[in-house]
C-alpha cells in the first residue's frame, strides 16, 4: 500500500495528488509515468509525473475526473492509501542540446509539461512555454511555470478569460514563422497534439508528442497501448510515451482511446450510485 501525503483541487474537475513512493521517486525523470491501482478491484491506470522528490520520497500527479477510477481518486485524501504504485515507466523526455525549445501544455497536459520544461531549463535549453486551457478556471500550474527560468510564458484560453484568446497553435505558428524554434514538444489532448504537429511540420521543426494510450500492465506485456508511428506499430509503454509528432497516426490513437467509453460511463454510473458527492 502507498500512503497519500496530500491532495489539492486545482479546478472543478482537476485534482493533484502526492503519494509516498520512495523507490519510484528515486528514479523518476521528466516525461516518465507510473501505474496506479486505487483499490482491490481497481484497474491499472497510467499517469505521467507532474513532480517528485527523490530526497523526500514522493511522487505527484494531476488528473481530471472522467471515469470511475478518477472519481474514486477524488474521494481520497492525506492519510488514505493507494493499493499499487509502479514505476517509473517509459523513456524519459529528451532534454539538453535542443537549443530554442517550445513546450506546449494543453489542459491537464500542463502537468506533464511542467517537469519537462523544468528539465530542459536545467539541461541548458532555452525554453518558451505555451499554456493552453478552455478557460481561466481550467488553467493549471501557472505559478509553477512562472517560477522556472523560462525565456517566456504564453497563456492561451479558448474564451480569453486568461492570457490571449485563441488556440495554442497560434503563438506556436508565429514563433515557427519567425524562425525562433529549434525544437517543439506538445503535451495535451490528442487533437491538440495533432494540430501542434501539423503546425510545426510546415516549418520543419522537430516535434515530440507525449502520448497517453490505454494501458494495462505498462511494461510491454499486453500491447494495449500500441500506436502507429511512421507506419510501424510501437508500444506506448516501452517505446514511448514520447514519439515524433510528425509520424504519429493521431486518428488511430484517438479511435483507440475511445474503445471503452461506454464501459467507463457504466462503471462510473455504477460507482456513483453508492457515492454521495454528486460530482
Amino acid at each position: 500500500m502507498f500512503d497519500i501525503l496530500a491532495t489539492r483541487q486545482l479546478s472543478d474537475s482537476v485534482f493533484e495528488m502526492t503519494v509516498a513512493a520512495p523507490a519510484v521517486a528515486r528514479k523518476a525523470a521528466a516525461g516518465q509515468f507510473f501505474i496506479l491501482r486505487v483499490g482491490e478491484r481497481g484497474e491499472r491506470v497510467p499517469f505521467t509525473f507532474s513532480d517528485w522528490s527523490a530526497d523526500e520520497g514522493w511522487i505527484r500527479f494531476i488528473f481530471m475526473r472522467v471515469g470511475a477510477t478518477t472519481h474514486k481518486l477524488t474521494h481520497l485524501a492525506a492519510g488514505d492509501q493507494l493499493a499499487d504504485v509502479v514505476g517509473p515507466l517509459g523513456v524519459p523526455s529528451h532534454t539538453g542540446g535542443l537549443g530554442r525549445a517550445v513546450v506546449v501544455g494543453g489542459g491537464v497536459g500542463a502537468a506533464v509539461a511542467y517537469p519537462v520544461a523544468r528539465a530542459m531549463c536545467a539541461a541548458g535549453d532555452e525554453v518558451t512555454v505555451i499554456l493552453g486551457a478552455r478557460n481561466a478556471a481550467l488553467l493549471i500550474l501557472e505559478d509553477e511555470f512562472r517560477a522556472l527560468p523560462l525565456k517566456s510564458l504564453v497563456v492561451m484560453t479558448d474564451d480569453g478569460s486568461a492570457g490571449e484568446k485563441g488556440l495554442v497553435t497560434h503563438p506556436l505558428k508565429e514563433m515557427c514563422a519567425e524562425g525562433e524554434v529549434d525544437h517543439a514538444m506538445a503535451i495535451g489532448p490528442a487533437i491538440m497534439m495533432k494540430f501542434c504537429a501539423a503546425t510545426t511540420k510546415e516549418f520543419g521543426v522537430p516535434t515530440v508528442v507525449s502520448l497517453n494510450p490505454i494501458m494495462v500492465d505498462g511494461t510491454g506485456m499486453c500491447g494495449a497501448c500500441r500506436v502507429t508511428v511512421g507506419g510501424e506499430t510501437k508500444f506506448g509503454c516501452v517505446d514511448g510515451p514520447d514519439f515524433d509528432g510528425h509520424l504519429v497516426d493521431f486518428e488511430e490513437l484517438m479511435s483507440r482511446q475511445r474503445i471503452y467509453v461506454e464501459d467507463e460511463r457504466e462503471a462510473d454510473v455504477e460507482y456513483s450510485k453508492g457515492c454521495s458527492c454528486h460530482l
Binding site: 478491484r41 484497474e43 491499472r44 464501459d263 460507482y271
Partner: peptide, 12 residues
C-alpha cells in the same frame, strides 16, 4: 484484472 466481473471490477 477480472474483467468478467465488470463493472464490479474496474477493468473492462
Amino acid at each position: 484484472m477480472r474483467a468478467y466481473e465488470f463493472p464490479r471490477s474496474d477493468t473492462p
